Computed example of a mutant assay.
Amino acid sequence: MLKEFKAFALKGNMIDLAVGIIIGGAFGKIVTSLVNDIIMPLVGMLVGNMDFTNLFVVLSEGNFATLEEAQAAGALTLNYGLFINNIVDFLIIAFSIFLVIKKLNSLKKKEEEATPPANTKTCPYCFEEINKDATRCPRCTSELSI
């Protein structure tokens, strides 16, 4: 069982997946910083100097000017501003992944188009793939027309 696990874990696809997850986590941090530190302050400025991180509703008693004050006091809050930040964060990550996948698919199509045509044909009797210059099928030994 240990040998099977080792063979599974060390396959090329598994290593690629692990690297992808690590890079994805780092990319997520960059996008989160982009949203929180650059995009949302600009959006907040455009909609009247609004700080989305301080959009919240206190579900318990008390009035608080900022989310930090409410959390420090132990008040129960509904943080819809942070939820908006997370939605924008998700949309940017999803769009970025879409662009990467789109580019990879276009490169894959170009690679498929660049491959030369196959040097084979199908035997009309047994449907085996054979060399296009063959005059007799190696599988069923039928004579083929040229």
Rank of each mutant, 00 (worst) to 15 (best):
M1H: 13
M1A: 11
K3C: 08
A7C: 07
A9P: 06
K11R: 12
G12T: 03
G12S: 14
N13S: 15
M14W: 12
I15D: 05
I15W: 04
I15M: 11
I15Q: 07
L17I: 01
I22M: 12
G25Q: 09
I30L: 14
V31D: 00
S33Y: 11
S33L: 10
L34W: 02
L34N: 07
V35P: 02
D37Y: 08
L42R: 07
L42Q: 10
M45A: 12
N49P: 02
F52N: 00
F52Y: 02
F52W: 04
F52L: 01
F52H: 01
F56I: 00
V57T: 01
V57M: 10
V57N: 12
V58C: 02
G62S: 05
N63A: 08
F64V: 00
A65N: 10
T66L: 06
T66R: 11
L67M: 07
L67G: 02
E69N: 05
Q71E: 08
A72T: 01
A73S: 05
L78N: 12
F83M: 12
I84V: 01
N85Y: 05
D89P: 03
F90D: 10
I92D: 03
I93Q: 08
I93V: 05
A94C: 07
S96E: 02
V100R: 11
V100M: 12
I101L: 13
K102C: 13
K103F: 13
L107S: 15
L107Y: 13
E113A: 08
A118H: 12
A118C: 07
N119W: 09
T120D: 14
P124I: 03
F127T: 02
A134L: 10
C137E: 01
P138F: 11
S142V: 03
S142N: 15
I146D: 15
